[in-house]
């Protein structure tokens, strides 16, 4: 996590490809920020400046976008990030139990990171678009549904096991 930021050579190429999709440079803002977060895990002030220079906009315009969208984070997250849906359909099917289980199993509250840096998690008041699986969560972006206390525990165990087996 150095203070300076620049795209890797591979991502520079991807950035050039992104620019070609739009009639303005600024329109590459969201894809560039996704790319930044994919590379670094979060968006640092230095990265904001870097993107501002690339897109030829004031850095405040980048900050405005980063702070507006909930998926962009200005702080590092855990190696694995969990988002729990708390929207109406998940709530009536027991999202409270999912929350309680995660809090207990991970030992940190929503918004926190575990001590070993493996997991961060948060409760999302927005619908994640998988109500047929309610209650559900997203683990590193992928949906896990029809959750119960046991299933959440099992999911975390499976995740830990896949790590030790080097997967």
């Amino acid at each position: 996590m150095s203070a300076s930021f620049e795209f890797t050579p591979e991502n520079k190429k991807r950035f050039e490809e992104i620019l070609r999709r739009y009639p303005t440079k600024r329109a590459a803002m969201l894809p560039s920020l996704h790319l930044t977060q994919e590379q670094e895990g979060y968006i640092s002030p230095e990265a904001e400046q870097y993107i501002a220079d690339l897109l030829e906009v004031p850095v405040v315009d980048v900050r405005e976008v980063v702070s507006f969208y909930t998926m962009f984070t200005r702080n590092p997250l855990g190696k694995h990030h969990i988002r729990v849906c708390e929207s109406l359909s998940c709530w009536v099917r027991g999202s409270d139990e999912v929350k309680e289980t995660l809090e207990k199993e991970l030992g940190v509250e929503s918004g926190g990171i575990t001590e070993d840096g493996e997991y961060s998690w948060e409760v999302i008041p927005d619908c994640l678009g998988a109500c047929e699986l309610a209650p559900m969560l997203q683990l590193d972006g992928y949906f896990e549904g029809n959750l119960t206390r046991e299933k959440v525990v099992e999911l975390l165990k499976k995740q830990a096991a896949s790590k030790t087996s080097g997967k």
């Binding site: 999709r21 739009y22 969201l30 894809p31 920020l33 996704h34 507006f68 969208y69 909930t70 998926m71 962009f72 927005d126």
Partner: peptide, 12 residues
């Protein structure tokens, strides 16, 4: 016809 995908970032 060009078709591009543009990903949002979490804003209803």
């Amino acid at each position: 016809l060009d078709v591009f995908i543009h990903r949002g970032a979490g804003a209803y």
